[in-house]
Design a protein around this nucleic acid. Structure first.
Lengths: 149, 149
DNA sequence: GAATATTACTTGCAAAATGAAAGTTATTTT
DNA sequence: AAAATAACTTTCATTTTGCAAGTAATATTC
């Protein structure tokens, strides 16, 4: 990492870290889709190239948004998990989806529109809380599994 | 504009439009700093290059986030103003700043930290409402001025 | 009203980021 | 032991970003 921050503006500084095509997509894949391995990410529908993926995961780890770890019974597969710093991006992600729902649908009619979107539309805050809760539960079992067997 | 959307995911679709180094910075400059002319943007501290700026403004207009207009008494200076679609990004911007405040300060200690940030920290929603209100008021006078004299 | 300055760009080229494809290494499975 | 898998790295093409200079259309000043 070098020359990360353009200035002292809190808006711009967040974008200095997150403002590109992939960072928030990767975080969303972890939070919303439960992706956690390198392979998981390469298989998601956004189809990120492996070189980009490894570069982005490295930065996300350096910044402290994710941690890289393993299950003790498997030395091959790495696990990438959101830290609290990463989980704290949930409200931001929810705002992204909410804006898409309300303002992008007109020019992109095939945007997903099911029960989940209804939930989001109905109660943004509860939707965010739920995402966080689910991820934390998943984390608990993942880490539990990591410490046994 | 061509090949804009990677998939039907609402999170990713927002990033297909907004996910780069400049889009949200420009919107923030309009909303928070009151920038409205080409010159205004080139003079802000993030120092965007003019070719990038004109390209980004063009896309923002195509997508309907801003409109390009003029004061009737001045044919030289263009005004770039946020539409409702653009103003609807306020909560997203506030989440960006909030995350910076809470989680970026550790690795970027010089991030702005005054009364405004305290307001934001104290009441995100009120802070957002206030930004929107102020911009709408400014819009009213700008458009008023445009229709007279 | 001619010269100067200002605003909003565009153009050309260098540098950096992204993308596609293939190759490498260390496990794990068969 | 051989084959398959996961996680990368490397190479090279393409796209995006960035810098510097140039241009055209107003607007201002002398």
């Amino acid at each position: 990492m070098q020359k990360v921050f353009r200035c002292n503006c809190p808006f711009t500084s967040a974008l200095d870290v997150l403002g590109d095509k992939w960072m928030l997509v990767i975080i969303k894949q972890m939070l919303v889709e439960g992706k956690e391995t390198f392979k998981d990410f390469t298989e998601s529908e956004e189809a990120i190239a492996t070189n980009i993926l490894s570069a982005k995961l490295k930065v996300l780890e350096e910044v402290g948004i994710i941690i890289k770890t393993q299950r003790p019974d498997n030395k091959k597969t790495n696990l990438y998990l959101l830290t609290d710093k990463g989980l704290a991006l949930t409200p931001l992600l929810v705002e992204l989806a909410n804006w898409s729902d309300k303002h992008l649908r007109a020019i992109h009619p095939t945007i997903v529109n099911g029960k989940e979107m209804e939930f989001l539309r109905n109660d943004k805050l509860a939707f965010a809380k739920n995402l966080e809760k689910n991820y934390k539960e998943k984390l608990a079992t993942t880490l539990y599994t990591s410490n046994h067997e």
